[in-house]
């Protein structure tokens, strides 16, 4: 008789190979079909979880293709914990290396955007900064703390436009721009996740704020990389949405 570790090991292996676990019995010999219920449950439930996290990828490739894609990904990248909201971080890179999707280079970036949205949705809560707390502050000394949901992303293909076109009720006839796109993702005061197109300078500004640079230093670096960049637009956007928080007590 197999020990329980041997049994579970064979069972887990059989979920991939269809080999029956030791001792599996069923009347009339259809144990294979009954074991397939477990195989299907594992594959289907993980694929569904992935599809909820990456709904635009699912829409772009279609349900049948996504089911197959989800099965391959879930068999090669099993979740490491039962907390499925943490599962899928490697999916964008997996898509980039998935041969059948080689003709669709924007897939990885669309998936990165969807992953960032999920992270923003579940990010820690933090009370927004009261603008009065920094009114009149000296920018060369002012360090702004970003809300944990704030992320910026750069896309080599028009991933942001493609993502927008695949939102419910969106106009699919938009022109697909060439060149890089930049996005800001954050969760606003009403807990809704927002996605904004920003400029390269905005992205650099936010990246440097995230590392603890002063507002003045971050704005200078943004202007150096993106000449003519004015920081006001993205700063107002962040302030209004609750993208800045009070600094952690130290």
């Amino acid at each position: 008789m197999p020990s329980h570790p041997e049994f579970a090991g064979s069972f887990a292996e059989g979920l991939r190979t269809a080999a029956l676990p030791p001792g599996a019995v069923f009347c009339d010999g259809d144990a294979d079909l009954r074991f397939a219920v477990y195989r299907n449950n594992v594959s289907h439930s993980l694929s569904e979880a992935l599809g909820q996290r990456f709904p635009v990828i699912r829409r772009l490739v279609g349900d049948p293709f996504f089911a197959a894609l989800g099965r391959v990904y879930s068999e090669t990248h099993r979740p490491r914990t039962p907390v499925l909201l943490d599962w899928g971080d490697s999916f964008p890179d997996f898509l980039a290396g998935f041969a059948p999707l080689a003709g669709y280079p924007y897939m990885r970036d669309v998936a990165r955007l969807e992953w960032a949205r999920g992270r923003a949705y579940h990010a820690a809560d933090a009370a927004p900064l009261d603008p009065a707390a920094v009114a009149g502050a000296d920018p060369s000394r002012l360090v702004l703390t970003l809300h944990p949901s704030v992320q910026v992303l750069q896309f080599g293909a028009a991933a942001l436009t493609i993502w927008r076109q695949n939102q419910p009720g969106a106009d699919a006839a938009q022109r697909i721009p060439s060149g890089d796109q930049f996005a800001l993702v954050l969760r606003d005061r009403s807990l809704a996740v927002q996605v904004h197109e920003i400029s390269q300078g905005d992205l650099i500004l936010v990246e440097h704020l995230a590392t603890g640079a002063t507002l003045h230093a971050a704005a200078e670096l943004a202007q150096w990389a993106d000449p003519g960049h004015a920081p006001q637009t993205v700063l107002v956007l962040l302030m209004q949405a609750g993208g800045f928080i009070h600094p952690p007590e130290s």
């Binding site: 329980h4 049994f7 579970a8 887990a12 594992v42 439930s45 099993r78 979740p79 490491r80 039962p82």
Partner: peptide, 22 residues
């Protein structure tokens, strides 16, 4: 039921034999 094996989480409620060991 069981749902993890080693470092893998399988996301289903899997069956176990009922023995003195289990």
């Amino acid at each position: 039921a069981w749902s993890s094996h080693g470092t893998e989480y399988l996301n289903d409620l899997l069956p176990l034999p009922y023995t003195p060991e289990t």
